[in-house]
Nucleic acid binder design. Structure first.
Lengths: 141, 141
DNA sequence: AGTAGTATCGCAAGTAGTAGCAATAGCGTA
DNA sequence: TACGCTATTGCTACTACTTGCGATACTACT
């Protein structure tokens, strides 16, 4: 099923703006910000408003083509949905990030599914805490 | 150790604004918003700026007296640090929230500690996903 | 009690994103 | 190809904070 068909299946339309946002997400390797996508698109098409970018990210997310993740309390990171999912650990002391395979998080997912009937998306928000190095140093890093 | 001593130990000072914020947090039962605290304080002290409330929440958090949690992508919830910690499950389809005891999350915490040397705070961000009822109904709720 | 040093304050401007609205433009149908 | 319906757009305003700055006021010290 191609893009147009997928869009139409949800009563959505194909617009220049929409395909530019999708293209930008696909070009950028990993965890981009909406601001960055908007900036890149506006280099070639200055008339396209940032709010349109935000709305299209949301629309493409409803289509299952892109996803967003929260790595910190501030900004939202966007990426294509077809990359391998993984969790994130971010240190609240030094800000370092590390990835953790979904398999490590799966036992918790299984437990929540069994005990609460809840299907969790453990890749959606980063897990905050204190990383190995900051734990060993007495006062942060 | 009382409040003033705790403050001074970190080179912080006791101000009217600061104690009003702490008092407001202590009075409010559960998961308040900064806006709500600011609103309540400004009823009696209209000259106190919301930004002061935000800064004091942060200062009191550094002191270990209050904490914040993210229940959704939008607003931050604040509460006193001495209540029993627990995780949150929030459904992205219907928005319902449920609490989950820390004990259920502890196995994952232990695993991250062991495998990555990372001490996670699994109460900091809610776990998003799909709740039991929304899973059983085909198209959301 | 008086004073110096600096944490904290109120205010105004900035950031990341959301929402309302009239104008525009995809898309199915004629 | 033209037409109507309505999704989408650009614009502006708003939300929830955050940040910079000069003025104020806690504290420690004399």
């Amino acid at each position: 099923m191609d893009l147009v068909t997928a869009l139409h299946a949800q009563g959505k339309r194909l617009t220049l703006q929409r395909s530019l946002v999708l293209e930008a997400i696909r070009r950028s390797r990993h965890h981009t910000t909406a601001e960055e996508i908007a900036r890149r698109i506006r280099e070639q098409h200055p008339q396209i408003d940032p709010s349109t970018v935000y709305r299209n990210l949301e629309a493409l997310e409803e289509l299952g083509l892109v996803t967003h993740t929260h790595l910190n309390d501030r900004i939202t990171r966007w990426h294509r949905a077809d990359v391998e999912r993984h969790g994130h650990l971010v240190c609240r002391a030094c800000g370092s990030e590390q990835e953790v395979p979904m398999a490590s998080l799966e036992p918790l997912a299984a437990r929540l599914r069994r005990d609460q009937g809840f299907e969790p998306d453990l890749a959606h928000s980063a897990i905050v805490g204190i990383c190995r190095t900051c734990r060993s140093v007495p006062s942060g890093r």
